Amino acid sequence: MEILDIGEVAERTGVPASALRYYDEIGLVTSVGRRGLRRQFGPETIWQLSLISLGKKAGFSLKEIAAMFGKASVVELPRQTLHARADEIDNQIRDLTVLRDMLRHVADCPAPSHLECPRFRKLLRVASRPASRR
């Protein structure tokens, strides 16, 4: 079994050693020992860190991500939770698209006053609606 030093793991994954130590302390990853004061990790740590990074990018908390790691490093991805999160991301994309369009229009609008511009006023109405009604 290939054993990786904390510095090697940090270099390969881009995850700072301080984060690796924290993840080890809270049980997200598990060090297999130490060489002097430096923690050593198994090769599975690399894919675990990739999943942690992906989970964080998707908006999951470390606690939620930890729940996805079962016993013996078995990943238990809750499909319903993933679908719900994907739906939330779709809503964020729609909201951000409206915001982007508004900013571009405001930057380029030839109207003397933005409030005189019908398109700007429409964008304001859409932006002020609750997300569930957009």
Rank of each mutant, 00 (worst) to 15 (best):
G7D: 12
Y22F: 14
G59V: 14
D24Q: 04
Y22T: 09
Y22P: 01
R12T: 14
E76D: 09
Q92D: 15
A19T: 12
L96C: 12
P78V: 05
T97D: 04
A66D: 01
A127S: 07
G27L: 05
D5K: 11
G59H: 06
D90T: 13
R38W: 06
I89G: 05
S132M: 11
S128K: 10
V126H: 04
P43K: 15
E2M: 14
S113K: 10
T81E: 08
I52F: 01
R34V: 10
R85S: 13
V98P: 01
R94M: 12
D24L: 06
L124P: 01
S132L: 12
G42A: 14
E25N: 09
L99M: 15
L20P: 01
P130F: 02
V15C: 02
P112N: 08
V9K: 00
V126K: 03
S18F: 04
S53D: 05
C117E: 08
Y22S: 13
L103Y: 08
R39K: 08
T13A: 07
L37C: 05
A111M: 11
S53P: 03
P16N: 05
K56D: 04
V9Q: 01
G7M: 07
G55P: 02
V98L: 15
S53A: 14
P16C: 04
G70N: 02
R21I: 10
K56H: 04
P16K: 04
Y22H: 15
L99W: 06
V29N: 00
D95S: 08
V29D: 00
A67M: 09
H105M: 12
G42Y: 05
A111H: 03
S113F: 10
E64P: 04
E8I: 08
F69D: 00
E8W: 04
A86N: 07
V29P: 00
R104I: 13
S31R: 02
L37H: 05
I89P: 02
T13C: 11
S50A: 13
